[in-house]
Design a protein around this nucleic acid. Structure first.
Lengths: 220, 220
DNA sequence: AGCAGTCTGTGCAAAATTGCACACTTTTGC
DNA sequence: GCAAAAGTGTGCAATTTTGCACAGACTGCT
């Protein structure tokens, strides 16, 4: 064990994000339980310890879109750290039974301010998130909905698995897939069947993605 | 003047981002001059002091897309702070004559690590950038290209002006507009003329946006 | 002034996408 | 176990978007 000191050098982001403490509480969510809703007051940040969370937005016209899925190790609702943001701009819902750490905004600001190591972890997270959203945007700028669907399926096939090249996709309706790639269910259905006929995916109950699906994304 | 101390309390992000120093040099760019290109080695971060920069990506098929315009006060190439990223994933080009501060990656990491205040500035920037990209993505998920064009025009009308509600848009071809909203020039031309006929924009040489264009974005 | 290169206004056929409808099949909740 | 709700496989007409093509306007350069 390390020498005990009062200095900040003892601060460990890993531990901070695992344990409760001042301004930190544990939140347990059942599958499909809502963490917060677009429009809610935003006074805390969450950190996913176990499970996964889906971020969605609703358009003024009532259409829903899914922005991203966040699994263990991600922050949720981090926008509220920005001074101007007092309101949630997205909704967050648990995809499966999940455990999150809720961190008060004030505590979050304090720790960011005082603990280098933690700020580093947070910056890394923000950069990764940035890169991912930007990729999604590029995907929209360049690709047809067919390719977007193929890409999302490939990404989902690895979602939440750091290790094995598992190819089974989390239970997910065609409707939700459509929301994620910004198209209609008709379209998703059409392509899913096409991919199946071509042998890129298997698909009876659960969806299994084969690496051959990569061809759709890569080709031409 | 404040008491002189050797402590880090003297560090001022404002000053740091204005002056050269260890690991920091000034870069002057002419209009349309390239700062870096997709694929270049990424070993530094830039901070826009004056002028503005355009970020673009090229698809494997050779199509080009414009991801964002960054004016004074923004960082460019910040992705390289992420440990994994050794290569530029976008290209950056000056929109007008511009002055940037180039900060070595190592120096950037050092300062982020040691100076709370600076880390705060950087986190704020990342959050703002995140929010903006996310809005762009939502725009794509929900809106038709007509609305996207209207939105971009409105945003451009205020680009680089913190103060006056100026309505003149920086010189920008229909081709570039098309790249920004992910459609074809045909389409942009079609809508530009429509907007003009409807009196939403004026358009002889330079583009002037009227607030009535808001209706396109807001209406149903 | 003259030429080259870029940008704009059009037009149009081909292709992709949307929006619905409806019948089935699975799940879910009680 | 059953009824309601959610999800899926189809089909199709209307609409939107793409991809080209071409002529005229404008710009910068020599």
């Amino acid at each position: 064990m390390r020498k005990t000191r009062v200095s900040i050098a003892d601060f460990d982001p890993e531990i901070f994000l695992k344990e409760t403490g001042l301004g930190r509480t544990i939140v347990e969510l059942k599958k499909n339980q809502v963490l917060f809703t677009q429009g809610d007051a935003a006074d805390s940040v969450f950190y996913v310890q176990k499970g996964s969370v889906k971020l969605t937005v609703i358009s003024p016209q009532g259409k829903e879109a899914t922005l991203s899925l966040l699994d263990a190790g991600n922050f949720v609702g981090e926008q509220c750290v920005a001074s101007a943001e007092r309101i949630r701009v997205v909704s967050a819902t648990a995809l499966v039974r999940s455990t999150l750490l809720r961190i008060d905004k004030a505590e979050m600001l304090r720790v960011l301010q005082q603990e280098h190591a933690f700020a580093g972890v947070f910056v890394s997270f923000l950069l990764a998130r940035n890169a991912r959203i930007q990729e999604d945007l590029v995907d929209h700028l360049f690709n047809s909905s067919e390719k977007r669907l193929a890409r999302i399926l490939l990404l989902l096939a690895h979602f939440g698995k750091d290790n094995e090249p598992e190819t089974v996709i989390p239970k997910m309706s065609q409707e939700v897939l459509a929301e994620m790639i910004g198209t209609t269910r008709s379209r998703v259905n059409f392509f899913m069947n096409r991919f199946r006929k071509l042998g890129f995916i298997d698909y009876n109950g659960v969806i299994q993605v084969h690496s051959s699906l990569l061809n759709v994304v890569l080709h031409e």
